[in-house]
């Protein structure tokens, strides 16, 4: 009886199940970069919102149309740079591991990621133009978290817990609405960096 063969068989089965159903080229470095970009974005948003206000008095977020425009520019630049970094590092990792970047798993991952994400994005834009500014930052966290949980079946398992952390932070942000931007910075900045480092150590670049 050759036990070694069956140990190998079990390992092969597990490996094949993962490889055929999950997108495993996700790079931790893209998480770290996205985190740093989010912190930079939040800092410039902070300066835009609270510019020219007395720091010792109660501060109120007042948005003129001009400010709104600047914020939208900051947000879209941050988003685009993060996506670009994600694509760059992930492509590099897929190439190194000799894996195809565009296949059924990638498609499944993206479709399931984008359904909640686009819903949240559109909702936030509507709220923005209706003037409900305070809840937008935490709402982006909630929808991003839901998107991650939804997509986690098709990629590394850590993505699921990352999603749950983002949802919880988002709910906290809605409750403590005055801290929206700070909690947003923790969620998109610090948590991304932490998870990025964990995944970089665990799965390599």
């Amino acid at each position: 009886m050759n036990k070694q063969k069956y140990i190998e068989d079990l390992r092969d089965i597990k490996q094949m199940m993962n490889r055929s159903s999950r997108f495993i080229s996700l790079s931790g470095l893209s998480g770290i970069t996205a985190g740093i970009l989010a912190i930079l974005g939040a800092l410039s948003a902070y300066q835009t919102i609270y510019a020219n206000q007395n720091y010792l008095e109660y501060r109120q977020a007042i948005l003129s149309d001009e400010h709104l425009f600047t914020l939208l520019i900051i947000a879209s630049t941050t988003l685009l740079l993060s996506i670009a970094a994600g694509i760059f590092f992930t492509t590099r990792k897929a190439k190194r591991n000799k894996q195809k970047l565009w296949d059924l798993q990638t498609k499944n991952l993206l479709i399931n990621l984008f359904i909640p994400l686009v819903t949240g994005g559109i909702l936030c834009l509507i709220l923005l133009f209706k003037g409900f500014i305070g809840i937008i930052a935490p709402l982006t966290l909630i929808f991003y978290g839901l998107a991650l949980v939804n997509a986690s079946k098709y990629t590394l398992e850590e993505v699921r817990s990352l999603g749950i952390v983002e949802i919880l932070l988002g709910l906290l942000g809605i409750y403590f609405i005055g801290y929206g931007l700070i909690i947003w910075t923790i969620g998109f900045g610090i948590i991304h960096i932490v998870y990025g480092i964990i995944m970089h150590i665990k799965y390599g670049s």
Binding site: D12, K14, M16, S21, K100
Partner: peptide, 25 residues
């Protein structure tokens, strides 16, 4: 057989796979 084992493992966790995907896997 390793290949048949691989085919089954891959198909069990997917609704379906086409010939070329299986081939590259």
């Amino acid at each position: 057989n390793k290949i048949r084992l691989g085919i089954m493992s891959a198909l069990i966790v997917n609704d379906y796979l086409d010939f070329n995907t299986l081939k590259s896997l």
